[in-house]
Nucleic acid binder design. Structure first.
Length: 276
DNA sequence: AAAGACACCTGTCCGC
DNA sequence: TGCGGACAGGTGTCTT
């Protein structure tokens, strides 16, 4: 067991965490659950303690939720903005903002740290994916279900800006602000364009761009920015690949100024020349 | 039904 | 140096 495994969250780090945590969690028996701060996005339910004595059988991911399956029920985890999961030996003391510790029978423990507490830990006795959080979600962006045809149909009846549409988890999951900006830049689409006014050919370009941006981000270990770089563990390196997000200088394609606007209470970065 | 505003939270950064 | 305020973002919920 190494000193730090799991990861901070940003975009697709949940996906990465699922893979990385798996070998350290499978087959572990839970001997105790310690909660120092139950007030996350929603309070951690008391019945989470039903899991004590259970053995972890599998890990699953849907959207940005991590589901940990045991023979006594399921944990549903979301890392919010600043959450991270790490496996450490029990004797390593807790750090600030470490809200949950799951202790295992081999003297290791899973630690959940989340300074901003935008994340959550929920319990499901059975059928975790029947939880309300999952029932109305759109397809996974890297799956075969996310096609240009599908997105076109979604856009047909929507007059909102395309950026807010691709960030809507009921349309497609997993596209946060950074990846929305990058995908629109790569596909040459102005983020303000009304969804129902984009032709099929450009929708196809957008779908391709989304898949490409996400695949690259996963490959590079996610994106870590500013205030997250101080956290322990290695940062994600996708930050170095960002073309427009956080760019207050010039467009990497045409050299003109990158514009910054606000859409749906979020910053949008784009090039008015390359994105129309 | 759809669109938009708002809330939650804290570390960081900036200006005074 | 210290302090107050703005800001960042994922996503459910409320309002229009």
């Amino acid at each position: 067991m190494s000193s730090g495994i799991g990861q901070r969250k940003r975009g697709w780090v949940t996906w990465i965490s699922t893979i990385r945590l798996q070998p350290h969690l499978l087959g572990r028996r839970i001997v105790d659950i310690q909660i120092t701060q139950p007030r996350l996005r929603w309070p951690i339910p008391d019945d989470i303690h039903c899991l004590v004595g259970g053995t972890i059988s599998s890990l699953q991911r849907r959207a940005k939720f991590l589901v940990v399956d045991t023979n006594r029920g399921h944990m549903i985890w979301h890392l919010g903005m600043s959450g991270s999961l790490r496996i450490l030996p029990n004797h390593v003391p807790a750090v600030k903002h470490e809200h949950v510790t799951i202790l295992f029978d081999d003297d290791s423990s899973l630690r959940y740290r989340d300074p901003r507490r935008f994340g959550c830990l929920l319990f499901a006795q059975q059928a975790p994916f029947e939880h309300q959080l999952f029932t109305r979600l759109g397809p996974e962006p890297l799956s075969d279900g996310f096609t240009a045809d599908y997105l076109s149909r979604q856009c047909r009846t929507r007059s909102s800006a395309i950026k807010t549409i691709i960030m809507d988890s009921h349309v497609v999951v997993g596209i946060g602000n950074i990846y929305a900006c990058e995908s629109l830049f790569l596909s040459g689409i102005n983020p303000k364009t009304r969804a129902n006014r984009i032709r099929a050919k450009r929708i196809q370009r957008l779908v391709n761009a989304i898949k490409s941006v996400l695949a690259q981000a996963i490959e590079k270990g996610g994106t870590t920015l500013q205030d997250f770089t101080q956290a322990d563990g290695k940062p994600g390196y996708f930050r170095h690949s960002l073309q427009v997000y956080g760019n207050t200088g010039q467009c990497p394609k045409c050299g003109r100024a990158i514009h910054r606007i606000t859409q749906a209470q979020r910053s949008t970065f784009y090039c008015t020349n390359c994105q129309r």
